[in-house]
Simulated scan of single mutants.
Amino acid sequence: MAASDSLSGSWTGRYDYDNVAYGTPVTFDAVLTETGATLRGEVVEPNSFRDDCADTLLAVLIGTRQGSRVQFLKTYTDFDNGEPPLYVGHVNPTATRIAGRWHFPMNPGVKGTFLLARTAQAAVRRTTSATVERVIDA
């Protein structure tokens, strides 16, 4: 894995429920930091399921990356959500998208898909960095 393949940076995403009875799709923003095989992040999303919380929810991601496979737990900071959902996905070859599935291990009926994409700002930083590296190497 090259340094330019790091998942660190700004992302935008969406998670969907397999069963719409549990909820509608939710968009969110994330900032990820990859250090070695460890993946950490912070998520901000609209509150779509907790009447006792503010309009915006915050969560922390903690997980790992092994090659193209990523896995992380999402723990909300605004409330105790008991069992955090587990996300398992794969990074595309250019490290600009992560897609996969999420579920609650002890509540298998609540599950769905997710997609993360680098934001334009993060993509510009990656392109600029890659161009600088090529100029230096030339």
Rank of each mutant, 00 (worst) to 15 (best):
T77G: 12
T77L: 15
T77A: 14
D78S: 12
D78I: 09
F79N: 05
F79K: 04
F79I: 11
F79P: 00
F79L: 15
D80R: 00
N81A: 06
N81H: 01
N81L: 07
G82P: 02
G82R: 11
G82W: 00
G82Y: 06
G82D: 13
E83N: 13
E83W: 02
E83F: 09
E83Q: 15
E83S: 12
P84C: 07
P84H: 10
P85R: 09
P85W: 05
L86V: 13
L86G: 04
Y87V: 03
Y87W: 09
V88M: 07
V88Y: 02
V88F: 00
V88R: 13
V88T: 15
G89Q: 02
H90T: 14
V91K: 02
V91I: 10
V91F: 02
V91E: 01
V91G: 01
N92M: 05
N92Q: 06
N92W: 03
N92R: 02
P93M: 06
P93A: 14
T94N: 11
T94R: 09
A95Y: 06
A95F: 01
T96Y: 01
T96V: 03
T96M: 02
R97E: 15
R97F: 08
R97C: 11
R97P: 00
I98N: 08
I98K: 05
I98Y: 05
A99G: 04
A99N: 13
A99W: 00
A99F: 08
A99R: 14
G100F: 00
R101D: 14
R101I: 08
R101G: 06
R101H: 14
R101S: 14
R101P: 00
W102H: 10
W102F: 05
W102E: 04
W102A: 09
H103Y: 08
F104P: 09
F104A: 08
F104W: 14
F104S: 07
P105G: 07
M106P: 00
M106V: 06
M106T: 15
N107P: 00
N107M: 12
